[in-house]
């Protein structure tokens, strides 16, 4: 399958602070990939590198086979970009901004897709963007991307500042559009529950590294939340295969991709005693917290 995005050995520092080292990932055509991580793990950094607004310390990032910082205009037409906070030209109104962007995408611009969404907002075409709420602005930004009809959508923290209604509206529209049109999407969000039904694949990042890179279905079918009753022992320090083991009174909780038999063996090796162990499947948000920790 053709990869629209290919990043190899991406390493980046801000000053002396390492953001990540040797990050490798690719986004195949037609897939929706979500980049998940806590604040400061490098989600926006990655989006900035992908959109050509940050030169990585080292490594390569290719989009449609072209270096991200030197994409030619024809290829740029195929990329829809949503900047963190749904930033758009504040001094324009709804019809002006549509008129402006349409000139750059002759032949591919879908004016009706934009106005369909704008009609739902029940705002006048002369309404200025700087007079709109965050939610309304997000719909303008989404509407413009839908009208652009790009092959690849790069969306940076689309849920930022949105109330649940607008978040749901945004996700539903995006999902419907991406799935029905076979679009490729690379997105980040700090609200994980929105992603579960939206993304096909996910990358979960921790500080300086990738924790997990797989399809969401693979992740949710493989990961288990384990609970041990009457547990005792020392869980300080890392235990291979177990993610963030944590005592709550006499109960020990952790996540793992391993089978119960393997987990029990690991606990035994680390002298952790318990009276009973049980496991359950979890949703994406719990998996994210289980993998990255609460702190």
């Amino acid at each position: 399958m053709e990869n629209l995005i290919e990043c190899t050995n991406l390493t980046h520092y801000y000053g002396k602070r390492l953001i990540y080292r040797d990050l490798n990932f690719s986004v195949p055509k037609g897939r929706i990939l979500g980049l998940l991580g806590k604040n400061g793990t490098g989600k926006t950094t990655t989006i900035n590198i992908l959109s050509g607004y940050l030169k990585p310390y080292s490594g390569d990032c290719l989009i449609f086979g072209q270096p991200a910082n030197a994409i030619n205009p024809e290829v740029r037409k195929k990329i829809g970009l949503l900047i963190e906070g749904h930033v758009q030209y504040q001094f324009m109104n709804i019809s002006q901004i549509e008129k402006f962007y349409s000139a750059f995408y002759p032949g591919q611009w879908k004016k009706e897709a934009y106005y369909e969404l704008m009609n739902k907002l029940k705002v006048s075409p002369s309404q200025k963007i700087n007079k709109m709420s965050n939610g309304q602005r997000s719909q303008v930004a989404l509407g413009l991307i839908l009208a652009q009809n790009p092959e690849l959508l790069v969306l940076d923290d689309f849920s930022l500042g949105l109330d649940p209604g607008y978040r749901r509206l945004f996700v539903e529209y995006l999902q419907d559009y991406a799935k029905s049109e076979g679009k490729t999407v690379f997105l980040t969000s700090h609200i994980i529950q929105d992603m579960e039904n939206l993304v096909d694949d996910c990358i979960i990042m921790d500080y300086g590294k990738i924790l997990v890179q797989m399809s969401v279905s693979e992740l949710l079918s493989g990961i288990r939340l384990y609970r041990c009753s009457d547990a005792e022992g020392d869980v300080n320090g890392e235990i291979d295969g177990l993610y963030h083991p944590e005592f709550l009174r006499d109960k020990l909780e952790f996540c793992s991709f391993k089978s119960q038999q393997d987990v029990e063996q690991i606990l035994h090796q680390h002298n952790i005693r318990y009276s009973a162990i049980e496991s359950e499947t979890i949703n994406l948000e719990d998996a994210f917290i289980g993998l990255t920790g609460k702190y």
């Binding site: 959109s51 607004y53 900047i83 758009q88």
Partner: peptide
């Protein structure tokens, strides 16, 4: 303002 210039630089020209 809020790095709006990114939008301009992203224009396909």
């Amino acid at each position: 303002h809020r790095k709006c210039l990114k939008l301009t630089l992203h224009l396909p020209c």
